[in-house]
């Protein structure tokens, strides 16, 4: 399968998923809309991590720090400072992006398992700070976070159906935006660094600058997801910032297929929905979740999207 064919397949999968999401949205009840919003928010978070992990090869176990930064910035700006929510949303992305610049300046000096562990360490330090912070409610968290008032556009975001549609739209925009980024010269350089960092450096490429830029962009988009999560739950707590949240996002990316952007979206849907329904069936649902992860690697190999692309290749060969 050529690169072009692969790209078309991904776009087609994205289109099918968007259509499926819209169909689900149109037929869903109140709780269905809640689930749609949850999946879409986590999909945004996972796509931002995929830019790091899949495209640039930077495996972070501290990405929740930026998700949390976005959520806490939204809570702080709206609840504590009284900003309107529509303004807090972009401001939260800036806050998360700035935090990513600072963290990234240290982290991009390391690679491989050392990069994983330093992002974990910084993430846990952010968690420890928020857990003890009186301003942000400590481990009790903070409630009463409003959603933007988009009455002028005829939207009432407090209605789950309007909110989920808005989040779905944002997820689609993030996907299209990140697709552009990955396909751009900037994205090509990141992919080159992923393939062979030493070679890129020998070619005179300022590798660290590129890595820092990717880290910052991914952080800002994670901040967007965090801000949306805060608005969705009307509540924040340090749980959002634990390393297990980062771990879940990483799992979602791997399950869906690294470096494919659409894969992590499918992964978010699969993992969240499987968890939701399995936990209603048995108290040992984590057992089956664990088996599912093992099965994905054994059967699908490179995640759901990776398996689809392999199938397409095989089919293509057979047809050709």
């Amino acid at each position: 399968m050529t690169d072009l064919a692969q790209d078309r397949l991904r776009l087609a999968v994205a289109a099918v998923m968007a259509a499926a999401a819209l169909l689900w949205w149109a037929t869903a009840g109140f709780f269905g809309h809640e689930l749609i919003a949850q999946v879409a928010i986590f999909a945004i978070f996972a796509m931002s991590l995929d830019l790091l992990v899949g495209t640039a090869g930077m495996v972070s176990l501290g990405h929740a720090a930026f998700f949390g930064a976005g959520a806490y910035a939204t809570a702080g700006l709206t609840v504590l400072l009284g900003w309107p929510a529509w303004l807090a949303l972009p401001a939260s992305m800036v806050v998360a992006g700035l935090l990513a610049v600072v963290v990234g300046a240290f982290a991009v000096r390391l690679a491989g398992v050392f990069f994983i562990m330093i992002t974990l360490a910084i993430g846990e330090m952010v968690h420890a700070y928020l857990f003890r912070s009186r301003t942000f409610g400590g481990d009790d968290g903070l409630g009463g976070i409003p959603r933007p008032d988009l009455g002028a556009l005829g939207l009432t975001l407090d209605d789950p159906s309007h909110f989920s549609l808005a989040v779905l739209t944002l997820a689609l925009l993030v996907y299209l935006g990140l697709r552009q980024v990955v396909g751009s010269p900037f994205g090509q350089v990141l992919a080159g660094i992923h393939r062979n960092e030493a070679r890129m450096r020998a070619l005179g490429c300022p590798v660290r600058h590129y890595k820092l830029a990717a880290f910052t962009l991914a952080g800002a988009i994670a901040g967007l997801a965090g801000s949306l999560a805060a608005q969705h739950n009307n509540f924040i707590s340090p749980e959002l910032v634990t390393w297990t949240t980062s771990g879940e996002a990483l799992i979602v990316v791997i399950v869906g297929g690294m470096g494919t952007l659409v894969g992590p979206v499918a992964g978010a849907a699969a993992v969240i929905l499987a968890g939701h329904y399995l936990s209603g069936l048995t108290e040992y649902w984590m057992f089956f979740m664990g088996l599912m992860f093992v099965a994905v690697v054994l059967i699908a190999g490179d995640g759901l999207q990776g398996a689809l692309e392999r199938l397409a290749r095989r089919f293509g060969r057979a047809a050709g």
């Binding site: 509540f235 707590s237 939701h276």
Partner: peptide
């Protein structure tokens, strides 16, 4: 019965499920 997993966001989602659905 719904499993809260001792996570605030999960507890809230399960609460919404019980009330809405």
């Amino acid at each position: 019965r719904e499993d809260s997993e001792v996570k605030p966001s999960v507890g809230l989602t399960k609460t919404k499920k019980l009330v809405y659905q």
